[in-house]
């Protein structure tokens, strides 16, 4: 029964983390210097309706009861109503989330496709110039403010060179032309058979996802290098060489297979990081995703929307952590 026990431990951990996240968003919601009663009723409410509303919102209850009520509401999918859009926050978040998902997914693919080979290459050439060059590039990548890089990239590739279309997910005249089935424009366009719109959406996606992806290249490359160096020291690598295998097959066939599992964890974590990093990227590229939704709500002090969005990003974060943990157990023969 050790599997059952491990499963239970995992479940308890996830539940505790979610509860912790709820506690944090709840407390942030309480320290806001905005009176929720007044924002619901308007400034000219009389004392009687004020007290009534206060009771209705549960603000006269002790703090822990208020928290339980909050957890109950969230469990039922009630994240409150957005002041800005006058719609339930959950509805808003579900509508904008696919755009962020699309951006972050393409970005993490770019990050992994560039980062893993770079890390392997650096490890194989340890201490020689390719290693130093990749390390320096990684440090540079980690020092660039992503919103500034986005602006400069727009200036160069859109305004000066005209290689890519401007901000947004598709050109203005294509907007709303395909039904939002998945909410992911590229997929929806393909489903509708609109190849023109698909290519237009891809062109719009290239720059923001590349900028966002670059951010994870450095991290993925660095972790890959470290894992790879550990593996290349192992005796089974000598065994593979004794067999007469080429260095390429020793590295990519034997060593990489051993780091596949921890690498998946790293990629899952950087995926989570990219979902979060999309806040600034979306702002620069006017990408109508969760990040832009949260920042717009921030600027108009729409706390329900901010906290709802935070909660959703946090939940996705935790889910990705859980997923990488499960994959680890599923894929590593030693952990099975």
């Amino acid at each position: 029964m050790p599997t059952l026990k491990r499963g239970l431990t995992l479940l308890v951990t996830v539940a505790a983390t979610l509860l912790g996240l709820l506690l944090v968003t709840f407390l942030i919601g309480r320290v806001v210097p905005i009176d929720p009663v007044l924002s619901a009723l308007g400034d000219r409410a009389n004392a009687e309706s004020y007290a009534q509303m206060r009771t209705q919102l549960g603000l006269d209850l002790p703090l822990w009861q208020q928290f339980l009520r909050y957890v109950g509401d969230v469990a039922q999918g009630d994240l409150g109503t957005s002041v800005l859009t006058s719609r339930p926050v959950l509805e808003d978040v579900l509508r904008v989330f696919p755009a962020t998902l699309e951006l972050a997914t393409v970005a993490v693919v770019i990050g992994a496709v560039l980062g893993v080979p770079a890390g392997v290459f650096a490890a194989v050439n340890r201490g020689r110039w390719p290693d130093h060059a990749i390390r320096l590039l990684g440090l540079i990548g980690h020092s660039l403010p992503i919103f500034w890089l986005g602006l400069m990239a727009l200036l160069l590739f859109y305004a000066k060179l005209d290689w890519v279309p401007g901000p947004g997910r598709v050109d203005v005249f294509y907007e709303g032309m395909v039904d939002a089935v998945t909410g992911i424009v590229t997929v929806d366009a393909l489903l509708a058979g609109e190849t023109d719109i698909f290519w237009n959406a891809v062109q719009h996606l290239v720059l923001p996802s590349a900028i966002l992806g670059l951010y994870s290249v450095a991290y993925i490359a660095r972790m890959t290098r470290g894992f790879m160096l550990d593996q290349l020291r192992q005796e089974y690598i000598t065994t593979a060489r004794v067999k007469g295998m080429s260095e390429t097959r020793v590295v990519w066939g034997h060593a990489l297979r051993n780091i596949a599992v921890p690498l998946i964890t790293v990629i899952a974590l950087s995926y989570a990081g990219l979902l979060e990093g999309s806040v600034l990227t979306e702002t620069v590229f006017a990408w109508p995703g969760l990040g832009l939704y949260i920042t717009n709500s921030l600027l108009s002090a729409d706390m329900n929307a901010v906290l709802g969005g935070t909660l959703v990003v946090g939940a996705v974060f935790i889910a990705l952590n859980l997923l990488s943990d499960l994959l680890y157990r599923l894929l590593d023969p030693r952990a099975r």
């Binding site: 983390t17 942030i28 320290v31 806001v32 979060e276 949260i294 706390m303 935070t310 990003v313």
Partner: peptide, 24 residues
């Protein structure tokens, strides 16, 4: 360490945004 692990699993940047939004 449980508390630390829980806090580690939070999205840092978004929480920082939410904090600033709340504190002003």
């Amino acid at each position: 360490m449980r508390i630390t692990d829980i806090a580690l699993a939070f999205p840092k940047l978004i929480l920082a945004l939410a904090f600033v939004a709340a504190l002003g």
